[in-house]
């Protein structure tokens, strides 16, 4: 019962957060200087044309009125029409979202794998050179943001040793037999591994750039809690049973050490998704973030709003899922 109430409370705060985010974006976007309507019309347009177009996009009403109308639409899945691309915002955003999701999830998988490996290495050979090396690598990984990693990777694998593509999502000459925009996922389902390889050659650098800072954080925190767990009685008991050190870490300690890392990964994953904005720009990857920057440059108010709200919904959803998973995994919280 208490568990249920906690979930309901959590859902209510999520709704408040989303509403606040929507309101702030709406107001900020409307004080943007530069008239998007003027940019759409030919130079010889009359005052009447401008007024008509403003009315068409609802820009002649007060900000609060516009907000209520927009919110009413959003609840029904109508995000308005993009001013620069003249297509429904919902359609544009949904078209790009899969690209960003695939990139973020690939980066998350890389980060967990790399960070987990670092933590296990550092724990297995703790107090030795290996652990010191892991510490230094984690320190550097954490202090350097994704944008810089992206540039360094471009130098390394784009110029010095050109192994991967430095721009785009997929080679344009490829014929894509897909019915959704989840190219990577669908290429795997349809067993078109040639396309998978091409996609991965494009996604490698952006996803590694996004993954490195998170991998370092996971590596450090997981190593810390693994080392604490290794000192507990039940681990010593496992050792006295004659289990090897590696097996003790993997089979006994890991399960208990992973919980604090999980919460952190949730928050950090939202930072990673936020990082896609500039990383997509850097690698000309056709995702949501890249479109967002164009939308700001073009003063495309409905599109900016739509994209920001989708990001905000994504972030709050990730946090919600992490909280619920944590509650489900942690018996102390479940029965509290």
């Amino acid at each position: 019962m208490q568990f249920l109430r906690a979930i309901l409370l959590r859902l209510a705060t999520t709704a408040v957060t989303l509403f606040g985010a929507a309101l702030i974006v709406f107001v900020v976007v409307r004080v943007v200087p530069g008239n998007p309507i003027a940019m759409m019309l030919p130079p010889n347009a009359t005052e009447d044309d401008v007024a008509r177009l403003r009315a068409l996009y609802g820009l002649d009403k007060s900000i609060m009125e516009q907000f209520v109308i927009w919110l009413g639409g959003v609840v029904q899945g109508d995000f308005g029409t993009s001013i620069s691309l003249r297509r429904p915002v919902a359609e544009l955003v949904l078209g790009r979202l899969p690209a960003t999701l695939e990139l973020s999830i690939l980066a998350l998988i890389l980060a967990v794998a790399l960070g987990g490996a670092m933590a296990l290495l550092g724990t297995r050979w703790r107090g030795r050179r290996t652990e010191a090396a892991v510490d230094v690598a984690n320190g550097v990984g954490m202090s350097v943001p994704d944008f810089l990693w992206g540039l360094l990777l471009i130098l390394l694998f784009g110029v010095l040793w050109p192994l991967f593509h430095i721009s785009g999502r997929v080679s344009p000459q490829l014929d894509l037999p897909f019915s959704t925009n989840f190219y990577l996922f669908e290429s795997l389902l349809r067993l078109r591994f040639d396309i998978t390889a091409d996609l991965l050659a494009h996604m490698f650098m952006p996803s590694v750039a996004l993954a490195l800072p998170l991998a370092a954080i996971i590596g450090q925190l997981l190593k810390q809690s693994l080392k604490e767990t290794m000192g507990l009685d039940y681990v010593t008991l496992a050792r006295t049973k004659g289990y090897g050190e590696t097996r003790v870490i993997l089979r006994e300690a890991l399960r208990n050490a992973v919980l604090p890392t999980l919460t952190l990964v949730g928050v950090q994953f939202t930072f990673l998704i936020g990082g896609t904005v500039i990383i997509e720009r850097l690698f000309s990857y056709e995702g949501l973030g890249n479109m967002a920057i164009d939308a700001v440059i073009n003063r495309d108010l409905p599109l900016i709003q739509g994209i920001v709200i989708v990001f905000a919904a994504l972030f709050t959803a990730v946090n919600l899922v992490v909280d619920l998973t944590y509650a489900a995994l942690n018996p102390r919280l479940r029965h509290a």
Binding site: T17, V28, V32, G274, A292, I293, R299, V308, F311
Partner: peptide, 24 residues
């Protein structure tokens, strides 16, 4: 805390670009 929550729901780089568009 509620303000912090709302702020954390924005991608920071996008927020920065948006603000520069507003502020010049």
């Amino acid at each position: 805390s509620r303000l912090v929550d709302i702020w954390m729901a924005f991608p920071p780089v996008l927020f920065a670009i948006l603000l520069i568009a507003v502020l010049g």
